[in-house]
């Protein structure tokens, strides 16, 4: 028996919008720790890891570990039917091949339930090692989204370069080139507008902008984004979900042939 009640149901709506374009089908895992997902995109270039901790739910009952295969497209369709202020409850019975999403309006005058078919998904779970990153950039998520969108109109790839001067995003395309430098800016009165750069080593890596623009769909989940870079590792683009967990995207770099 599974029953998860989330008063701020809009979080789940935003999570689905943040991952559905990257991954079509995925297994959601439910355990005492929380509701989680790990999945690669179909090209195996990017990986998304989601965690919604059990403490973040108003009610969290998960009698045994469950892995439920879902079409994220279909799940997003169902969650779009929930109002932004609705309380969302996820329910599943042991051995059932369906999951139910229940939406309650804040005043309890409208209650809807949507039952969705589960699916069998053969997916590999990867072990992601703890790593020390050479550079960690924290910046406003809206700023990062804007940069990726703007650069995507000019080129296909972004070179992210962190030095003690700041973080530079560069692209090159048929029409020309673009460079955007963000310097450290520790706005004490407005922490959500801060750009903070922690650098052990200068690092320069190249990534496909298509994926970065897909990650930026998580912008409504967090005011800040954390970009962790090391020359020998995929970049991690993390959006923290307040008091609940995170959506992390891992993206393998492009290298010179």
């Amino acid at each position: 028996m599974l029953e998860l009640r989330l008063v701020q149901g809009s979080i789940l709506k935003k999570v689905l919008e943040a991952i559905k374009d990257l991954v079509n089908d995925a297994n959601f895992d439910c355990s005492a720790t929380g509701f989680s997902l790990q999945a690669m995109d179909s090209s195996h270039v990017a990986l998304v890891a989601l965690l919604l901790r059990s403490e973040g739910f108003e009610h969290y009952r998960c009698d045994r570990n469950l892995s439920m295969g879902m079409s994220l497209t279909n799940m997003a369709k169902m969650l779009k039917c929930a109002g932004n202020d609705d309380i969302v409850t996820i329910k599943a019975d042991d051995g059932s091949d369906t999951i139910t999403f229940m939406f309650e309006s804040p005043t309890q005058d409208k209650i809807a339930d949507f039952e969705m078919k589960l699916m069998d998904i053969d997916s590999e779970h990867l072990g992601i090692p703890e790593a020390e990153y050479e550079a960690i950039v924290r910046m406003p998520s809206s700023e990062f989204a804007r940069i990726c969108k703007d650069l995507g109109t000019i080129g296909d790839t972004v070179v992210i370069s962190v030095t003690k001067e700041g973080v530079k995003f560069s692209t090159r395309g048929d029409i020309g080139t673009a460079n955007i430098v963000c310097r450290q800016n520790t706005s004490i009165d407005k922490p959500e507008e801060a750009t903070i750069i922690e650098m052990q080593e200068p690092v320069t890596l190249t990534f496909a902008l298509r994926y970065m623009n897909s990650f930026a769909k998580a912008t409504p989940l967090a005011t800040q984004v954390t970009i962790s870079l090391s020359s020998e590792l995929p970049v991690v683009v993390e959006y923290k979900i307040a008091e609940m967990g995170y959506v992390r995207y891992y993206l393998a770099p492009k290298i010179e042939e």
Binding site: H44, L126, P129, P234, A252, I255
Partner: peptide, 14 residues
């Protein structure tokens, strides 16, 4: 020309 690396080159299956 750039070569796109894959996630599986960095992370192993559990």
């Amino acid at each position: 020309p750039c070569l796109q690396r894959k996630i599986l080159e960095y992370f192993d299956g559990d």
